[in-house]
Design a protein around this nucleic acid. Structure first.
Length: 491
RNA sequence: CGGGGUGUAGCGCAGCCCGGUUAGCGCAUCUGGUUUGGGACCAGAGGGUCGCAGGUUCGAAUCCUGCCACCCCGACCA
């Protein structure tokens, strides 16, 4: 049998790459650093979008759309913000091409130079706050709770499909509030939504926390994140929520009159998740047989494969299969009945396994005779034969089981790979030889964080929200520390 | 931008060191037939600017020079 996939334990990076391309999720584009998201991969994104959008709307948010181009001058209005993004911005300088006289191609028309260059958005705080300035006068105009689904561009040196590309898809929420407390509450509400989504839909256990000063979003007072552990022991930031304080309100002069008639700057938040989550989904659950997708995000939840010796049988099987399919669809389950004749059942088994379809039903002559169906689950590869009349109830239950099992498996993996350690020797040993999450004391200084990063490539993924206070000594400097923080090598 | 590597059919590769008929193999594709309970088999067919440009030579995928592209490792980052 031809090898489809690089072994996960031999070369994790190559395994991931093989999965993404061979499962038809995405491919590299001719444009360096950009990817083509193929229909199967995009379908996962659409499922994520649909669920998140529902959750945003349920908490009072509305969608809007702001331009992809940002005047260059906007970016420099918030000092930290420029510093964070200036190095990776694509810039539009002209608005017209013309035919080249010498060759057959086109050249930039030098006559068509823009008065002010436009930046392709790396994120939209500036262009949005420029609008909010006009929308907000009084506390009655607040809060503004807007989200946008968009693409952004950050010119990356090295890219990897889904995990880091120069252009990516995401949603960015941008909210404006009358008080500091309300804005902080919003920031926390959104990180809770992300965490809820990750755990209950992606089946991905996450650690909620906030970023150290070093890792914080450019322009934020505080950045919250959810951090997930991948199967190679590296952590991945799956979502962020920022409390922006009054930084952008001040930069764009957005003031409002409060209930007492006093003028004050508006409080802001922003939060986002991106197509990167698809990378997290893949790396957290999949195995050497291919993708493993949680039922709640799988584009196809059930595949039905007929096995027939002749056309007579084929039509009898088809009758049973279509009935099952229709019944499942009526219960809101997405089903594919694959009766193509150009591939054998064996080929289809392997193929759908590779693509991570959670449940497979097979119907052959034996089943026809016994009024049964073979049902197989992708997560454990277990098979059983059940009576036809039980299929729908069985599938519904099985999809829930699989969702829960994938989550528990990921949770157990994380628990088995989370280390509470107290010495530098242990720290370096685990980083070098084991990987995983390390909970350790840190003295709270940027210098120590930098030193640790330089010596081990480990960074502070986050300072977990629920980590309890305890006396300890910084593993690096030995200085006193009040709580453990989460260290890991990360994506 | 530093260090390493690779460009030959849609994909994966051999051939290059040591120049010599019509450039080959596996997968995929197409046609016909037999098959179908874990990647089926037989027969036939189509598909190539050998990364680009120049040079050496009677003759270049192969040797020489220059260029380009992509990949991996580092610096940057979600």
């Amino acid at each position: 049998m031809a090898k489809l996939l690089t072994n996960r334990d031999d070369n994790y990076a190559q395994w991931y790459n093989d999965l993404v391309t061979k499962a038809d999720l995405a491919e590299n584009s001719v444009v360096r650093g950009c990817m083509v998201i193929k229909p199967y991969g995009y379908a996962i994104w659409e499922k994520m979008q649909a669920q998140l959008d529902k959750m945003f709307k349920a908490t009072g948010h509305v969608n809007a759309y702001f331009p992809i181009f940002i005047p260059k001058s906007f970016l420099s209005k918030e000092a930290k913000h420029v510093e964070g993004f200036a190095k990776e911005c694509a810039v539009v300088t002209h608005y017209r091409l013309k035919k080249d006289e010498k060759s057959d191609g086109v050249v930039i028309d030098p006559e068509a130079k823009l008065e002010e260059e436009l930046i392709v958005r790396p994120t939209s705080e500036t262009i949005i706050w420029n609008s909010y300035k006009n929308w907000i006068q009084s506390y009655r105009d607040l809060p503004i709770l807007i989200n946008q689904w968009a693409n952004v561009v950050r010119w990356e040196m090295r890219t990897r499909l889904f995990l880091r590309t120069s252009e990516f898809l995401w949603q960015e929420g941008h909210t404006a509030h009358a008080s500091r407390e309300e804005a902080i509450q919003e920031t926390e509400k959104m990180i809770d939504i992300y965490s809820d989504f990750a755990e209950n839909y992606m089946a991905l256990p996450v650690i909620k926390g906030y970023k150290s000063e070093n890792e914080r979003f450019a322009g934020a007072i505080n950045t919250y994140s959810i951090e997930a552990l991948m199967q190679d022991g590296k952590s991945l930031q799956a979502g962020t929520s920022h409390f922006l304080g009054q930084n952008f309100a001040k930069a764009f002069d957005v003031q409002f009159t409060d209930k007492n008639g006093k003028l004050d700057y508006v409080w802001a938040t922003s939060w986002g998740v991106s197509t990167r989550m698809i990378g997290a989904l893949i790396m957290a659950h999949s195995d050497n047989n291919g993708l493993i997708l949680p039922p709640k995000l799988a584009p196809v939840q059930v595949v039905i494969i007929p096995i027939s010796k002749n056309t007579q049988q084929a039509s009898e099987i088809s009758e049973v299969a279509v009935k099952i399919k229709d019944d499942l669809i009526s219960k809101g389950i997405s089903v594919r009945y694959d009766d193509r004749e150009n591939n054998t059942p064996g080929w289809k088994f392997t193929n759908y396994e590779f693509k991570g379809v959670p449940v497979r039903l097979a119907i052959g002559p034996r089943d026809l005779q016994n009024k049964t169906v073979e049902i197989a689950r992708r997560d454990t590869l277990a098979k059983e034969t059940i009576p036809v009349q039980d299929v729908t109830t069985h599938v519904i239950k099985l999809l829930d089981d699989i969702q829960a099992n994938i989550y528990n498996k990921a949770l157990n993996f994380r628990n088995d790979n989370t280390w509470y350690i107290n010495s530098w020797e242990e720290f370096t040993d685990i980083i070098e030889n084991r990987g995983g999450f390390i909970m350790a004391h840190w003295d709270g200084t940027v210098e120590t964080e930098e030193k640790i990063k330089q010596e081990t490539k480990a960074t502070i993924s986050c300072i977990p929200i629920d980590s309890k206070e305890e006396e300890g000594k910084c593993i690096y400097s030995g200085k006193p520390s009040k709580r453990r923080v989460l260290f890991a090598r990360s994506y």
